[in-house]
């Protein structure tokens, strides 16, 4: 008898959860990790009762595979099996990447999986008695791989591969965020700055805003307005308002209309509304009860009226002697 398992993604993972029920036809867990069986594959075989196959040593017809375990750093293996629509578990934290990225979808692929991410899908803890027999069936297979830990060279290679994988993933994430967020905002900001500097709007702003932004009472007025509980949730989204005002003030500071010593208090004056639009979502990320959210959100909005202007005063004194 085969059992259904549920596999969730790990903390840095992508995709899933996958629910896998092996059949008489698809009854093999294929492990393509090199250097013996990966603990994740062992656990899968134990829970499902599937036969464990080392993909590096023996081939296995695709139509017999229930699930495949890989340790791919983001080029080939992680895409090959999803392309064939075989459920794929990657023990590395790799998302949609590599030349086959388009096939890596959440319904067929899950990554950064650790042993504790695997559970029987009825939600109960694995019952020891029924799973004992399949576990024993799996063990001999594991034992036939004599160098389960691998020799020194293999272990060194794996460790090095893991570290390089982390660096590579870090680089990939960075380039992603640069292209998706940083560059578009730079384009937007450049357009605004260009128009302000060339068109003469800059002078109007200098006359209108600088008197406010260039004095402590003026900054306090700005911060009180931004922290009004009716306005603050509307000024929050994506910090776009704070960023645009930041750019405007930066231009004025650069042009000499606002003294640089006001930079620090200004950073707080334009931002007392930070995240006010996001509070309910943030609180639900913190797994707060609905009741806590109901009370917490208005409470934060109200305290911002006090702590917003207060932050400007603190920043004003923290900025003394800076420029």
């Amino acid at each position: 008898m085969f059992k259904t398992v549920r596999i969730d993604r790990g903390p840095a993972g992508f995709g899933g959860p996958l629910v896998i029920t092996p059949t008489e036809q698809r009854n093999k867990v294929v492990c393509v990790t090199g250097g013996g069986f990966h603990p994740v594959a062992l656990k899968l075989a134990e829970l499902t009762g599937c036969e464990l196959v080392d993909g590096f040593k023996t081939g296995c017809p695709d139509d017999q595979i229930a699930v495949v375990v890989v340790d791919c750093g983001g080029t080939a293996r992680c895409g090959v099996y999803p392309k064939k629509r075989i459920p794929t578990i990657n023990v590395m934290p790799v998302g949609k990447s590599g030349p086959l990225a388009q096939y890596i979808t959440e319904d067929i692929y899950v990554s950064d999986v650790k042993v504790e991410n695997i559970s029987l899908s009825d939600g109960s803890a694995p019952a020891p008695a029924p799973s004992a027999a399949p576990a024993q069936a799996a063990r001999p297979a594991a034992a036939t791989a004599p160098a389960e830990k691998g020799n020194f060279l293999a272990r060194f290679g794996k460790a090095a591969g893991k570290v390089v994988g982390i660096f590579f993933q870090a680089g990939r994430n960075t380039i992603d965020i640069t292209i998706k967020s940083i560059l578009p905002f730079m384009a937007f900001v450049s357009m605004i700055i260009g128009i302000i500097l060339e068109s003469g709007i800059g002078n109007i702003i200098a006359n209108f805003v600088s008197p406010y932004a260039g004095s402590l009472p003026g900054l306090l007025v700005i911060s009180v307005i931004c922290s009004l509980p009716i306005l603050s949730p509307m000024l929050g989204p994506g910090a776009v308002i704070a960023q645009v005002v930041g750019v405007l003030l930066g231009v004025e500071i650069g042009a000499g209309h606002i003294p640089p010593s006001y930079a620090l208090p200004a950073l707080f004056a334009i931002n007392p509304q930070v995240g006010c639009d996001f509070l309910p979502v943030g609180l639900s990320l913190a797994e707060a009860e609905p009741q806590t959210i109901e009370i917490g959100v208005p409470t934060i909005l109200m305290t911002r009226l006090v702590t917003g202007p207060l932050s400007v005063v603190i920043a004003y004194f923290m900025g003394i002697g800076l420029f």
């Binding site: 965020i177 640069t178 967020s181 940083i182 905002f185 900001v189 994506g238 910090a239 704070a242 960023q243 645009v244 005002v245 930041g246 750019v247 405007l248 003030l249 930066g250 231009v251 004025e252 500071i253 650069g254 042009a255 000499g256 606002i258 640089p260 930079a263 620090l264 200004a266 950073l267 334009i270 931002n271 923290m318 900025g319 800076l322 420029f323």
Partner: peptide
Amino acid sequence: NSAELFVWMGISQGITQLGLPLGELAVRY
């Protein structure tokens, strides 16, 4: 928070333009 850099960068650009160093402002921020 790389998607919302311009709260800091907007204002710090002005400081750079004046030829002043940013390090201490960043630390104090």
